[in-house]
Design a protein around this nucleic acid. Sequence first.
DNA 1: AAGTGGTCTAGACCACCTC
DNA 2: AGGTGGTCTAGACCACTTG
Lengths: 253, 253
Amino acid sequence: MGTTQLESVPEPKYWHLRTVLSEALDSEFAVGEILPNERELAARFGVARATLRQALEQLELEGRLQRRRGVGTTVAPPRVGVAVGPSGHAWPGAGDDGWQAVDCTLAAPPGAVARMLETAPQEPVHTVRRSRVSHGQPVAAELLYIPASSVPDLSAIDAPTGTTRARAVLRELHRQTLEGQDRSVELGSAGADDAKELDRLPGAPVLVVTTRFFTEGRTAAVSLATYRADTCRLTFGDSGSVEIHHGPETRAS
Amino acid sequence: MGTTQLESVPEPKYWHLRTVLSEALDSEFAVGEILPNERELAARFGVARATLRQALEQLELEGRLQRRRGVGTTVAPPRVGVAVGPSGHAWPGAGDDGWQAVDCTLAAPPGAVARMLETAPQEPVHTVRRSRVSHGQPVAAELLYIPASSVPDLSAIDAPTGTTRARAVLRELHRQTLEGQDRSVELGSAGADDAKELDRLPGAPVLVVTTRFFTEGRTAAVSLATYRADTCRLTFGDSGSVEIHHGPETRAS
DNA sequence: AAGTGGTCTAGACCACCTC
DNA sequence: AGGTGGTCTAGACCACTTG
């Protein structure tokens, strides 16, 4: 019989579109340039807007595009390398990492964090909010959970909340001896408040970096940092930071 | 004046849906259980299927759900922690990391890789394919790029391709002295072949781990590993592996 | 006010898996 | 064959930014 499936495996339109656009981006557009609007692009390629959007979504996920409501779609610069745990072990807030303490409250952490801290499920802990800015753009938001037992001598005189409180808590934390840390990275989506702080919409993809700080066998603190996945490349260099490289796409489609 | 915006910021339906489903998942479903199909869920919540799908997409991104065409949507188990660069520096393939060499060819690497290797743009390099399996599931696919200069004594007698060739190349590579390495993690999307190897659809979100291996100041090899972002949590422990923790969502919405 | 991307709908058909 | 998720369409309206 004849039907030998010549044109088999028809790849989805949006995927093909992604490839075409990706190549156009490489050759015909400069960083920062704004693309034609979605309705026009869709018409130009002869597809529905939803299909075109599916392709754009992919490219945004890969850090190639940046879309802003009311403004347009622009060609994104290469991802910025952000150092995570730059060198050896160090307490958060020691030295000048890129972080900036914002606030500090006393509140019950999420269950997962309580479990890591080995505190009672509803027990309040010091919660330091920090944010990180790189090249003028917010790249990460962090919540640092520090149980009272890790800052035993915290003077009650300091402000009960606010930036000064945050710094006081960190200062006390540094008095402990750091014995080790333990990091993990996973994909997540930005909650409403994270999204606002990162200047993204809720649900935006983020890289969630969970760090546990150990002292005397116990977990002295837990950091939960969310990095903008579209603009950041997390680096764990043993040596200094390195040259740019372009595009997370691994192999041709 | 009166209009104090009581019910302002109406969050999108799909986002609200995501929250509702997420809570239902916590309380009413067991891992592995299959959910009602999309058409029924959409009807039950009184939304279009596309809207429901947007919510499911979010939950899948967060590793809470697993969807398989022709089968259904199931509740995903907690993400597995996958050790990346478990302890200190080591050549890839030395000792028993979770990797398994699959193949080896001689081909021109992507431009970005050539730049890191400091080889000419179209110069072919040894390209070792490896795959990693955890708990019976494929979790990562890797391409290891090794320029000829890093394996000078590679005997021409060995098979020119295939698994044995891959092992021979790695064996030769290990003869060099490893001076350091440099890692970065970013979000990407699976290419067609990666997708197949990871048992996902093209475009599936992956965590791309780029590792450079240094020797005598040069880059001796580059590894480009793509991990399934939905099922994996990358761990960079200084200590042994740790307990599960649940859910990458950082804060309540 | 006009233009952008973001959300949502109600359909249709397709690819894949299981029985 | 029947059921599932995946793709695609052609519209509508909304939220946001900018002149």
